[in-house]
Design a protein around this nucleic acid. Sequence first.
DNA 1: CTGAAAGCGCTAACAT
DNA 2: ATGTTAGCGCTTTCAG
Lengths: 335, 335
Amino acid sequence: MVKRATIGDVAADAGVSTATVSRVLNGGAVTEATATRVWEAVSRLEYTPNALTRGVFAGRSSTIGVVIRDLSSPFYLDLIRGIDEVAAANDSLVMLANTFRRVDREVAQVRTMDEQRVRGLIVTTGEATDGRTRRMAENGTPCVIIARSVLDAPPGMHSISLDNVEAGRLMAVHLAGCGRSSIGVVSSGRRTSQIERTAGLRRALADLGLPLPEDAVMVAETEDEVSGAVDTLLVRGRDRGEPLDAIVCTTGRLTVAVHAALTARGIAIPGDIAFVTMDDFPWATALGITVIAQPSYQMGLKAGELVVDRPSGPVELVFAPTLVARTSCGERQKA
Amino acid sequence: MVKRATIGDVAADAGVSTATVSRVLNGGAVTEATATRVWEAVSRLEYTPNALTRGVFAGRSSTIGVVIRDLSSPFYLDLIRGIDEVAAANDSLVMLANTFRRVDREVAQVRTMDEQRVRGLIVTTGEATDGRTRRMAENGTPCVIIARSVLDAPPGMHSISLDNVEAGRLMAVHLAGCGRSSIGVVSSGRRTSQIERTAGLRRALADLGLPLPEDAVMVAETEDEVSGAVDTLLVRGRDRGEPLDAIVCTTGRLTVAVHAALTARGIAIPGDIAFVTMDDFPWATALGITVIAQPSYQMGLKAGELVVDRPSGPVELVFAPTLVARTSCGERQKA
DNA sequence: CTGAAAGCGCTAACAT
DNA sequence: ATGTTAGCGCTTTCAG
């Protein structure tokens, strides 16, 4: 195994001191002649500087930490692309951790990011990690919380989220506009984003004279639970004397599962039941699925910028959702 | 901004030396009494050890580097999940870099990974980075090349790929079995994987008495070029007097685009033309698209293990593709 | 413009 | 069992 060259080796080879080598590497004042000698030594010895050591000195590394709850959600891929774009433009790399939706992993991964002295941290985790991110912010590591807002955030602790109430409202208005009145909701849990979307939907529906009963909302934690949830929704609608004519899914993660549950029962979309869900995805066009889109790539960009630009106060960004109407709600086609 | 506690602060607070603190942190021989005092100091000062410094000493960090050419390809998401799984099980993190299919970025990102002294490197890049990965391997950093094999790999330089010829053969046999005979191919470029898939397809087709003309293969680098490529294929088939009855796509990255191009022309799948493509994806079931699947998650797992287990020689792993038959080739349904 | 020397936070011999 | 003393590879004063 070949030993790596250190800055000392380069210095010796070029006949200068390590300080001088460091200077030519980082752009200090050196004669052109010595600079040339040093560069020659660098390439001769195939010297690759050790970023770790640099980080030790600077007190932090140059990489941006990202902790994602669930890599398979379409939303996160674009978010990461946005972050990565900013990172690449700032000579940074992205350090990624997936938590597979487990809280203990969230906590552990955020701690590891802290240990790595990341330049900044972007997380989609729940409240369990707030204690540490708060402390990190106080220690000078900018932290960005995605998909929820934070109360009493200290300087350096930011949040980026979607206007979830508006997302719900957009769904309600669109569905009503398409003549639907008996709606069932598949939601994914107790996260505020889910609650707010449902609340926004319910309120807007009520304003339209279309109350959404409590029991028309079902929670499915995992994809496996979706089929049962859809069943229940269907039965309850019938029992209520108002068979469902629309299904709303409040999370992009479960879109496939809900769609599959519907088609598996031979339910035609939108013939029998309208369908609208969260987060745009490449195949939505082919399938004609109407969605509420988040500007996920833009959100990633902003998250990256918050890390790189280090604004002083806590920044809270709320993005607006947009409706992408296709055909799954029985939209009348333009002539 | 609150200053972080160092190991020295903890030592002072606990009334011991830094060596002792290091020992209780890393499990050396210490009295239970002192250990308690140290742990108390640790939590009182909210001490978080600096992984960078550790890395300096060990000569390398504990994170696994991953350089991906195109994060949006369905194949890579599962690959990353596999790698991440191994990383998490080994107290590692994944450092991710996306290169947006640009060679200069590939080279730059791999260099950065080297500078970060990653524990191991997993790349999907082209030959341009082979020089450095080779050197890294020689320096003791295991490198895994995904999706192509490497000639004369030194110890510590491994490769994981798909049996691409077999993938092409599977497509040919299936298509022929579905009664198709005039096939057009959309390929994504000059990478060996693409070449091999096409070659495998062509050979198997020839064995079946179904020659695949050179001009029945079109290369589309980007999604924008797909539509034109499909047009050309269609026209050529007609000119040849053998209108296309099947389209093959040799890369998962372009599946959406090819599918969209077909439906945009009002072509029915499989009524008018059969369609088969690479890489399984969540929506394939809903759309009935027949695919050749790669065990991407397993490949990620293996890649992670090669980094963690550091086998001595160069390892070359070739995975077998599987056909997932659905309805897009006009498969006759089971009774 | 360049070199000597101190030190970043931590670990690992070597003493005690 | 614990402390002392060197470093790890690099950057940054501070002299010259």
